[in-house]
Amino acid sequence: MKRWMIVLAVVAVFLTAVLFTESQWEGDVTEGAAAPLAEKAGVEESQVLPWKIDGDLLLFFFLSGGAAAGFAAGYYWRTLFSESGRKEMA
């Protein structure tokens, strides 16, 4: 029951985000707050790193990073909270 409640909550969040928006997601709120000030001050974002990650490459990194962090979280969660993990720790 609890599991289904979580699934429903996640689906509800996604549906709400998709259905009740009047515009496309235009970017991070920090960029939104800083952009007008930066324009007024004549300052532009710059690039320091020798590489630029955007487009599908950025999508790839987000998916890979999310998967790696999800795997790590699951692994440590199992170590901490499952019976088998507790036995291994002990």
Binding site: T16, A17, T21, S23, W25, G27, V29, G65, G66, A73
Partner: peptide, 19 residues
């Protein structure tokens, strides 16, 4: 792992069009 994912996850706020 939690801090990395949570602080990277762009969560949309309905009605505002921002994340």
């Amino acid at each position: 792992a939690f801090v990395f994912v949570i602080s990277l996850m762009p969560i949309p706020v309905p009605g505002l069009g921002t994340v």
